[in-house]
Write a protein that binds this DNA or RNA. Structure first.
Lengths: 278, 278
DNA sequence: CGTAAATTTGAGGTGCATCAATTAAAGTGG
DNA sequence: CCACTTTAATTGATGCACCTCAAATTTACG
């Protein structure tokens, strides 16, 4: 459990610029062009035609680098910027009244975030806080240009709805998992979901030889995602390692007995496949 | 906890028609016209112009009446029809491997559902089962006409994304609530969410005199929505009644001490307000 | 090489599930 | 309108999974 006590003061709106974010640095040139983007098929802009990508590029601000464990924005902060995660791994979380932290979403490359806001108009605030689980690269889009971008490219709306449905699906899966009762199930389910999501990535941290992925979560992160203490998470992980099911150490996760593990977590790969509008 | 053992055989696709649903009866004429619909501002079709409503009406199948506690469709069943709830109260739920039931969404008038499907194309199946908590009226839209309807009315896509965001928000709130620890909190939160949602309805079952709403959930329903046994739900409800917080009996819910109750449930009305695309 | 962060281990308490019945309420048909 | 049946609500006893508090140990990192 992590308690964030010092909530930073919101930036005065007029004076806000990206470069005021102390821990966010502009990526050095040359930055990745949208039309050369290696992960575009996984992003909001999948369906944009080659031609349109040229001017679409204008909507993007720049690519930024966010260091490991650094916070990108805080819940409630005025939402000036929307993001596509280009490379790395982020979390969206909320801090509860009792000080506990709840991780709501894990963001992997291609994920679009920051548009779920509270309130209407230019003063609307982010719904979650976001933090890097490893050094990450972000493509930033100023909110001010977003609406006109959506209007000029109507298919973006459909794609957004589709991506929203996918996130909704993941969220519902977690709700279902929450209805089960054992810590073993919760942990197995979460690890499997993340494992399969990473493996689906175009440039994934997946290693087929050891059936393992890059896995930067601490036991506390795992606990805050499923509602357990880091202590108990640790005990169960050890138990699972002793049983030869997995190996979860040094920022790497190997699944040694995938079949048995999926049985425990009641997980099926189809659960996290992209959903489509009818 | 409810165990559904007898999963009905799926209808052969070609032979399926609405009227094969044994418990679904066509509403007697005259049926409500879209352009005279009293709840249209709460539906997917809020932004459709008066002119367009005439031909929009053509897309709709008919209005159907679903009796109390009757099942509308089962998870996995081929999704031929999308619905707007016109009047009544439904639940969307999933039946877990261990036999338990998890209620995923409570549907109130205006809610659009049935479009979250598994798979692609005409063979895709519903993601949840749906059941009436009271006699309900439904507006049915054949899937086959839906895509062309969306194309002719692009603003429907934006509205759909917006409604999806709202549902996502509710779903996330439940996830947050699941991270809290006491049954008191879970129950208070759920009751308050439903109470406020009903009160926001145009034709609500709200009675200002007793600060009460129509509330058809059994203790089992409540338990299946938040992951408790009906026994324990009952104990907590009694406790709350003894403390003069609420009254939850005979299909009615009164909130007697709203301030204290909101404190317990860590609920704020803003949590369930509609969200907007930036 | 020193300090902070993360992991690990242990003991003890409790909230909620489980099992087992009883009672009350709501339909249903004669 | 009353017997009958079904469903929902209620009550109690027992056990365990997981939390809490407390501290030691290891790992990461400047």
């Amino acid at each position: 459990m992590i308690c964030l006590t010092a909530i930073p003061v919101a930036h005065p709106r007029s004076a806000f610029h990206m470069n005021e974010k102390p821990n966010l640095q502009r990526c050095p040139d040359p930055q990745t062009k949208c039309k050369e983007c290696p992960i575009r098929t996984m992003t909001l802009f999948r369906d944009v035609s080659e031609n349109d990508l040229v001017w679409m590029q204008e909507f993007r601000d720049t690519q930024y680098l966010l260091p490991d464990r650094e916070i990108l924005f805080q819940e409630g902060e005025t939402a000036h910027t929307l993001y596509t995660l280009f490379d790395g791994w982020l979390i969206l979380f909320k801090t509860l009244d009792n000080g506990k932290r709840r991780i709501m979403r894990f963001l992997l490359p291609g994920d679009f975030f920051g548009f779920q806001v509270d309130g209407i108009g230019p003063a609307s605030g982010y719904m979650h806080s976001s933090q890097a689980l490893m050094e990450s690269t972000l493509c930033a889009f100023p909110v001010t240009r977003f609406r006109s971008m959506m209007q000029k490219q109507p298919q973006l709306t459909a794609r957004l709805a589709e991506m929203e449905m996918h996130d909704m699906n993941l969220c519902q899966n977690h709700l279902i998992d929450a209805a089960r009762n054992s810590a073993r199930q919760h942990i197995a389910f979460l690890l499997l979901e993340l494992f399969h999501r990473v493996r689906r990535q175009i440039r994934s941290g997946y290693d087929g030889k050891t059936n393992s992925i890059v896995f930067p979560l601490t036991r506390e992160d795992i606990g805050d995602a499923i509602g357990l203490t880091s202590h108990h998470v640790n005990r169960i992980l050890q138990e699972m390692e002793r049983e030869g099911l997995i190996l979860c150490q040094k920022k790497r996760l190997s699944i040694l007995n995938e079949k048995a593990f999926m049985e425990i977590g009641q997980f099926e790969p189809g659960m996290i496949l992209p959903k489509h509008l009818i």
